[in-house]
Design a protein around this nucleic acid. Structure first.
Length: 424
RNA sequence: GGAGAGAUGGCCGAGUCGGCUUAAGGCGCUCGCCUGCUAAGCGAGUGUACUCUGUAAAGGGGUACCGAGGGUUCGAAUCCCUCUCUCUCCGCCA
């Protein structure tokens, strides 16, 4: 959510920002609603002031055993008027809020203007594709032939876009999770948290998944519970409604959760393999920082995610999302794309974003500077560190051997009883 | 699932036949005084949001907020309804 005062004073800038994002949106209705809101608010507060004064007087008259019926009659009318205006006001405030919640965040000045993902500039590349002297196979073939991935049975017990992991496949996924969490907690300064895997609608409103992206979510029938689409939601909401002390910042959290996404609108896309699942595992990093440090925090967040890929010796590149590809809540986002030789392409494996105060305004997450009385909104950031399923895909495809086996990356061996190779 | 109790400011905790409660009192915190230092003692202050006004900054006025939402009333922390959460006991259960 944007700051209303900012929108009021920068209508043109916000309008341009929406254009940059390839979104058509007229801000005029919002400003009209705001004006109307303040007009009625002034009236109703004036009447309430009168009512409060009269209330004291009535109380005093009664105590002195005098007749107060004239005042009471008078106030009866005022009260009716207040009731009417209050109703009008709450209708307008609802509309106003609904509107404000649908405006995306403003991109940072360093975000390149562009139409779609083709305009995302590559900002860095690390490592090299593995030297394979044979035709590399896609991970679903490797996984199925090794008997560690089973899409057929998963489809039978649940449906499309689910996977059953067997044996060393399951162990590899588990090793990756533990490896990532250990790296972030032991070397990057994050505190591990394990949040609920379901959240309520207020939390989803806070991080920006609601109201706009309802169709992406799985909701439990008859309850205000949603399966988490990412750990970002519960973890960012840990401090919803709180006022933090400056010396507590920055707060760095890392969490493993499964993620559940309906993938509505992506029918026919990435139908094979683990790339696009309704359920996948992810290790997430979340930061709460002082505003003036948030862009440095974004760079270090990115490095924290890159460190995982480097430790696994997986070739990747980093792109900056252009205005047309930037997510709704983000001010700036880097995507890390890992090389997948089996598919001869780079695939997104991490997304690291600075949300500035967009989420903290929605979720009401503030802090107080030392010696200051007024509160300020914190900046929130998060990034995948990493998407576990896709990391497993990258390991299978990059570490495949011509005999059909897969080497275990040395960094993971301690987590897999020193197993060097997954084979039949 | 059954029965009961509860939710008040940073914390503890009063306040239900509605109106001197502008939320008592205590603790904590901040500032000041006092004292070789510390502690104790004394004095003052101590929430959030919106809004109007004003400004270099400040300040001042107003409204709302006693778990959430709705209702009754001239007036609600207080009465009524719905919901959420917490606690105790019973049952079931990993």
């Amino acid at each position: 959510m944007l700051d209303l005062k900012f929108v009021r004073e920068n209508v043109d800038r916000v309008g341009q920002m929406l254009k940059d994002r390839q979104m058509a949106m007229d801000l005029k209705p919002l400003l009209d609603l705001d004006e109307e809101r303040r007009r009625i608010l002034g009236q109703v507060e004036e009447l309430k002031h009168r009512r409060n004064l009269a209330s004291d007087e009535i109380s005093r008259l009664k105590k002195e055993k005098q007749d107060a019926s004239a005042r009471i009659d008078e106030m009866r009318e005022v009260s009716q008027e207040i009731k009417g205006l209050d109703q009008e006001l709450s209708t307008i405030e609802q509309q106003f809020r609904d509107f404000l919640l649908l405006i995306p965040n403003t991109p940072h000045a360093s975000v390149p203007i562009g139409k779609d993902e083709k305009d995302n500039p590559v900002v860095k590349t690390w490592g090299n594709p593995p030297a394979l002297n044979f035709e590399p196979r896609p991970h679903w073939e490797i996984g199925e032939s090794l008997g560690i991935l089973d899409f057929e049975r998963a489809a039978r017990m649940t449906g499309a876009r689910f996977a059953l992991y067997w044996g060393m496949g399951a162990a590899l996924e588990r090793a990756l999770i533990t490896f990532m969490l250990d790296m972030h907690t032991q070397h990057h300064g994050y505190t591990e948290v394990l949040p609920p895997f379901m959240v309520n609608s207020t939390s989803l409103l806070g991080t920006g998944q609601l109201p706009k992206f309802k169709e992406e979510l799985f909701k439990l029938e008859g309850r205000d519970f949603f399966l988490v689409p990412t750990a970002e939601v519960p973890v960012t909401n840990i401090h919803a409604g709180e006022i933090l002390e400056e010396e507590e910042l920055p707060k760095l959290y890392t969490a493993f959760t499964p993620c559940f996404r309906s993938e509505a609108g992506s029918y026919g896309k990435d139908t094979r393999g683990l790339i696009r699942q309704h359920q996948f595992n992810k290790v997430e990093m979340v930061k709460f920082v002082q505003p003036e440090t948030s862009y440095d925090a974004l760079e270090s967040l990115l490095l924290n995610a890159e460190a995982i890929l480097q430790a696994l010796n997986l070739h990747y590149r980093v792109v900056t999302l252009c205005t047309g590809d930037l997510g709704f809540s983000a001010s700036k986002t880097y995507d890390i794309e890992v090389w997948l030789p089996g598919q001869n392409t780079y695939r997104e494996i991490s997304s690291c974003s600075n949300f500035e105060d967009f989420q903290s305004r929605r979720a009401n997450i503030r802090f107080r500077r030392k010696g200051q009385s007024k509160t300020e909104l914190v900046h929130t950031l998060n990034g995948s560190g990493l998407a576990v399923g896709r990391t497993l895909v990258a390991v299978l495809e990059n570490y495949q051997q011509d005999d059909g086996s897969v080497l275990v990356p040395p960094a993971l061996r301690p987590y897999m009883r020193n197993l060097e190779k997954i084979q039949k």
